[in-house]
Design a binder for these strands. Structure first.
Length: 606
RNA sequence: GGCCUCGUAGCUCAAUGGAUAGAGCAGUGCUCUUCUAAGGCAUUGAUGUUGGUUCGAUUCCAACCGAGGCCA
């Protein structure tokens, strides 16, 4: 095998896939595969190895043999196969089998990162399958608060992660722009609205009107009927109401634009708001009727899901009003007709029950065949240190104002630490956005989180700005070396010289002791880097952006230790210097790729 | 009342049956004539309670205690 072929083979496969391959072969040679449901290969503490498997422990139980002996047997079999060249060692410890990748493998991986660039970590596994992801569902004429940011941030990241794995994603906002509340708002506007005030601060003023009308209804319940009539007029296409409604929508979009821009959220590919589904609901009711699923109960039209332990799903209330659930059914059916094989709902955990009902009905109707076709990404509820946000207690934190505050403190820090920086405000906004996003995404999304503004906008420790800072530090070193007279220095610095020879390989010739001349910091950094593709894959499979967020933090830590101890600019051995430049360029690349998947931009300087 | 989450260090969180339960913040002590100190190094500190299943449990099961949510 020529060295070029060897390199290409290295490129084709991740460390984990290689370990998996060795292990499966050995198990099948030993005729043990049959006893195992799944092969579990995990990432252990670094001291044990790069990968580890509990296979011997699991099998030993079934075969009633000693785990240690079985582990030894498996290791021998792997060695017999003679294909463990990419490994430095395979060892048994307390029944686990630990794998350590060879330095050649790690070096080739650095090479691969530099060669693939932005594509490192991407895969074509998804095979272009069309997926719809719904996130950031604001309600027209209602101010956005912190809670709204979670769905936007998480949804945006999942969009990027799944796209990177070869799925064809499209997003939908599913804007809340329909329903009786608009009748009430129209009424309030006509009774108390002051256009000169509203034009200055549309959303907050409209919200005040909405609060006011609800208070008035407490005193005079007849007003509610009047409001309903306004909505009926809107539904029937009344020119004035229609115009106002459109105006409310436009004003709201303006506020959303600010959020999209400040947080660098992708704009939705589709805008299929609730109003869009108004005329699609009767067909759903008909379908349910024809299949005998629709029942009358106390004047309401319901689907009985008691058998599945999901209670009763109300579709049309006794007053004739339709429910969100009915609208959600119409929405799913419509989107499916647009060719989406899967629909992902990024909606907070409080809607679990309703969504379970929705999916159950769709399943009975035959619109969902496999449960994986409709997924609820249920993220935890956000509370403040003093408790849940409450309009009544006045503890609601407005999204736009909050973001502005974070941007201001980021700018202040830049003024202090890097006064000569160009485009300070632009960088400050990126830092602010990363602080907010990383805070959200580094938490396991299933758990409720306490949003302590002090922690959430911190720029120190395990934060987005720490990761950006690490990236900016690397860029600083690379810039300094561009000024140094190194004509062959390119993106692939340290990897190939102008003759196309592999400089790393020559530098990495074993020294007299037979070992490769790589120090511990470099080694730890390389070991961390090679995990990235597997990390992204697992984040996509489990739909957990936190997997990537936590990995990037560890990577940044590895780099910062390296940075502290290992000189690059001052290194006199030119080959060594090039190798280190290659290594840190690869590190910056992986940081950038990972941050991109979280929706975070990495500035060159900060 | 029925159903669903969740209880890990002073605080905010990791750990989707594995090895010595990891981090960050806060605290303490070092570290800027040296590639950005938004950094690095060291150090104090935890699985709500009681049982069970398992070679192995923060993770699975049961009961209890406590917090939150959804549905009438």
């Amino acid at each position: 095998m020529s060295s070029e072929t060897t390199k290409n083979t290295y490129k084709a496969i991740t460390g984990k896939a290689w370990v998996n391959h060795l292990l499966s072969n050995a198990l099948s040679d030993l005729k043990l595969t049959f006893h195992l449901e799944k092969l579990d290969i995990s990432i252990p503490e670094n001291e044990f190895g790069d990968f580890s498997t509990n296979t011997a422990l699991v099998l030993a139980k079934k075969l009633k043999v000693s785990p240690k002996e079985l582990a030894q047997k498996i290791i021998e079999q792997i060695k017999l196969g003679g294909a463990e060249t990419r490994l430095e060692s395979i060892e048994e410890k307390t029944g686990f089998i630990n794998f350590r990748l060879s330095k050649e493998f790690l070096l080739a991986e650095v090479d691969k990162i530099l060669e693939l660039g932005d594509l490192y970590g991407a895969s074509i596994q998804g095979n272009g399958e069309k997926i719809l992801i719904e996130y950031f569902q604001p309600n027209v004429a209602k101010p956005l608060h912190l809670g709204h940011l979670r769905t936007a941030i998480i949804g945006d990241s999942l969009f990027r992660i799944l796209s990177s794995q070869g799925f064809k994603l499209e997003s939908d906002t599913h804007l809340g722009d329909w329903g009786t509340q608009f009748g009430l708002l129209l009424l309030a506007y006509k009774k108390y609205g002051d256009m000169s005030l509203i034009e200055k601060d549309p959303i907050n003023e409209l919200n005040k009107l909405y609060v006011k009308i609800n208070a008035e209804i407490e005193k005079d319940p007849l007003l509610r009927e009047e409001g309903k009539q306004e909505f009926v007029k809107l539904e029937k296409g009344d020119a004035e109401n229609r115009k106002l409604w459109k105006q409310f929508r436009d004003w709201s979009w303006k506020e959303y634009e600010v959020i999209y821009k400040d947080l660098e959220i992708r704009k939705a590919d589709n805008d299929w708001p609730e109003s869009f589904f108004e005329d699609k609901m009767p067909a759903v009711l008909n379908e349910l009727k024809q299949k005998g699923m629709l029942k009358e109960s106390q004047g309401a039209q319901i689907v009985d899901l008691e058998e599945q332990g999901l209670g009763v799903a109300v579709l049309v209330k006794s007053d004739g009003g339709t429910t969100y659930l009915l609208r959600d059914l119409a929405t799913y059916i419509f989107r499916k007709s647009q060719g989406f094989k899967k629909q992902i709902y990024v909606v907070d955990v409080r809607q679990s029950h309703t969504l379970k009902q929705t999916f159950a009905i769709l399943q009975q109707l035959g619109h969902i065949v496999f449960p994986t076709e409709a997924v609820h990404v249920a993220y935890g509820f956000l509370t403040l240190p003093e408790g849940a946000m409450s309009t009544r207690k006045g503890t609601v934190v407005g999204a736009a104002d909050f973001i502005k505050g974070v941007q201001e403190s980021a700018l202040k820090i830049i003024e202090e630490k890097n006064p000569s920086l160009e485009k300070k405000q632009e960088v400050a906004n990126k830092v602010a956005s990363s602080a907010l996003k990383y805070f959200d995404l580094s938490h396991n999304l299933r758990s409720d989180i306490v949003f302590d503004p002090k922690t959430a906008i911190s720029f120190e420790g395990k934060t987005g700005p720490y990761l950006q800072y690490t990236h900016a530090r690397i860029q600083g070193i690379i810039r300094k070396n561009q000024n140094v007279d190194l004509p062959e220095l390119s993106v692939k610095a340290g990897i190939k010289n102008q003759n196309g020879h592999n400089v790393v390989a020559s530098f990495m010739r074993p020294d007299k002791s037979g070992d490769y001349n790589i120090n511990l910091h470099e080694l730890l950094l390389m070991r961390k880097l090679q995990y990235f593709p597997e990390i992204v894959k697992s984040a996509a499979e489990n739909m957990l952006p936190s997997t990537i967020a936590n990995y990037l933090f560890e990577l940044a830590q590895s780099f910062n230790s390296f940075y502290q101890e290992v000189p690059v600019v001052q290194e006199e051995n030119i080959e060594l210097k090039k190798f280190r430049l290659g290594l840190i360029t690869a590190t910056a690349q992986v940081l950038r790729n990972g941050l991109y998947l979280l929706g975070i931009e990495a500035p060159e300087q900060m």
